[in-house]
Design a protein around this nucleic acid. Structure first.
Lengths: 213, 213, 213, 213
DNA sequence: AATGAATGAGACTTCATTCAT
DNA sequence: TATGAATGAAGTCTCATTCAT
């Protein structure tokens, strides 16, 4: 009891550089640990007790910061989406050529997804337990996907390609890497992304596909 | 009590109208209902009691047919994969042109996935609860994917395309439709599949993508 | 584990006189124990674990018989009301004189209420936790009170007395004994009831109260 | 942090406009809100957090004013009893006729009970959680009931009526209104009280009930 | 006087599973 | 083959309370 509290406080004192800190910091810790666990074990496979323990808390204490497991999941999910979004935005900064830009975004997206355990929940076909918060999750995801829409717009795609289906195609291909990618492989996440884009790049205007069918 | 059982058996015998099995038939019923429920609610979101009720049984009775929930899930999964595989094989029968064949397979795969609730578990990034049977599930999936390898082999893809990554790309793009496809949409599953293939078809040998990068 | 089960079965075997018995009996046991505990400790003060333990079960097992604590409470409440109702009906059988009949009913009601721990939940101003099932509880109570309406109807009460308020008055006076009555007292429940009726009996037609006010 | 506190204090000082206390005032606020909530939701149905929030405090802060939830309840209860007592004493002031006086008291008691949510805890058959403080609660109630004893003493009741049982009878009949009274009804609390007294008034000395039984 | 963060016990409930019948 | 009754572990969440600041 006394020990646990001491431990926590000690850690916090060490962490903060004279700033005010406090609850916000603890929230971040929880978000980190929960993200890691949700990614590894899924929503239903992760217990609040586990998350609490990983943060150095007792299970009841989580509820001071998040009103429910669902709310916590939503927060984790949004944070993850935001992180990937920021990574992508950072990666494309200053790149002019549309295809180069597109590829850089794909690489950043893929790396954020496959590197670090915390973000692999992104692909989740949300379990029905999350039905109540589904709309929030989808809104967050949509926002991220609109980023890709903006990158796809300036591409000189062949005229018969639907840009919405194209966006779904890219993201589907990229995200599915989560299902099979193993960090131990000789392939980097960037390699995976680059190959996806390489394939798609053939579908530019003026490309010779006329005779088919 | 003894009487009650007799009554029940008598009624069932009457229902069966000279049919063969009994146990095997019941197994199939369970598989069907379990498949429907797993697809709709996920593995963890579906209870054995629910499955039993849907089959007209009590929860304990399931264990006569399947030793555990996991074993039942594996059976459902294998049956689903097999069904999709058969649909695909049926669809490509008699088609000679490699790309035509490829497209027909994609359409069949997509239709099996998006039509009928029973197969949408295919995309599942298996919950960690299933870790013990993971290898069986993956083996089943691999078998299905090798079918696609055979269809991809004869395609005249551009030389710089890796056929394994290409297969993962296709299936990723197709399977991801599960995350967004709504039957109410004006798009048919076949439309989705056709668009995926249309995009990929540009990546044939001799296609003009030379100047890129 | 083995022991617990054996104990339970042994008890059941002893209880049933060759009849079919089974779940119905267990239901009754639970009702009895739950009634006793609810009466002594209130709804919120009684845990399902306690009730289960008192019945020789584990807490989860209760849910085979009752879907929720609320449902269990309703069942207990209805059983209690019914028991009081039957006691009252038995007591008035064959009595012709209206006031005699009324008194006999009051005595029976009071005895059922104060004797045996199980029925003293009757007075409960239901805790708000029970809001969802409140209507069921009230319906049960109303039915019992209508029995009293039938007994009050033939009384030759003074003309200025409202029979509905009169019924509420009687039952209020009788039921309130729960708040103060102690079995150790030299007063029997019947004495209490008799005194209530004695006071009310003065309010008959033709009674001399004219000059007041 | 230090700053935040200063801000808060400054604001409060401004609000207080030269008033006296601070703590005593706060205590009263808490008592009011707690009373309202206990009345509406019961002791167990009301959380300290709720009470704190209603008072504009955080849950921890309550413990500066009250050592425990039980102590707070006792304080509320005593305050309520005292309020009802004072209302009754005020109502009977200057009335000479014993029955008039008795009726005035009943009306005041009933109005205090049914009007204003704060006093309806009076009827509470205290939940067993309150066992530790039960004696204090009962002492407070007894004091109030002794007030009624003083009003009943001078009544010219029929000789066979026990004055203690009579007091319990009156209060039982009056208090039970809490279980069924609805403010929306066409009946005022005073009507209810008046009817109770009207019925009892018949039981005066010399009333003609001789022939019964 | 009050805050905020944490405690830790305990509540209800669900669920896969077992096993005698 | 199927039933019904029970198991027991685990899960989410609530709550009174504490205490350093």
């Amino acid at each position: 009891m006394g020990m646990a509290r001491t431990t926590v406080r000690a850690r916090r004192d060490a962490d903060r550089a004279g700033a005010d800190a406090g609850a916000a910091e603890r929230r971040k810790q929880i978000l980190t640990e929960a993200g890691r666990l949700f990614a590894k074990q899924g929503f239903e496979g992760t217990s609040m007790r586990e998350i609490a323990a990983a943060t150095g808390l007792l299970s009841g204490s989580l509820y001071y910061h998040f009103a429910s497991k669902e709310e916590l999941f939503v927060a984790v999910y949004e944070a993850n989406i935001r992180a990937v979004g920021e990574a992508v935005e950072g990666a494309i900064e200053g790149i002019d050529d549309p295809w180069e830009c597109f590829e850089a975004a794909a690489i950043a997206h893929c790396e954020a997804l496959l590197t670090g355990e915390k973000t692999s929940i992104l692909d989740a076909k949300f379990p029905p337990v999350l039905a109540q918060v589904r709309s929030q999750l989808i809104r967050a995801r949509d926002e991220h996907e609109r980023l890709f829409d903006r990158l796809i717009a300036p591409l000189d795609l062949a005229a018969d390609i639907d840009r919405v289906l194209f966006r779904l195609h890219v993201l589907g291909a990229l995200n599915s890497a989560i299902l099979w990618y193993k960090p131990s492989s000789r392939l980097t996440p960037a390699d995976v992304a680059r190959h996806v884009i390489k394939v798609l790049r053939y579908a530019r205007q003026g490309a010779a596909t006329a005779e088919v069918r």
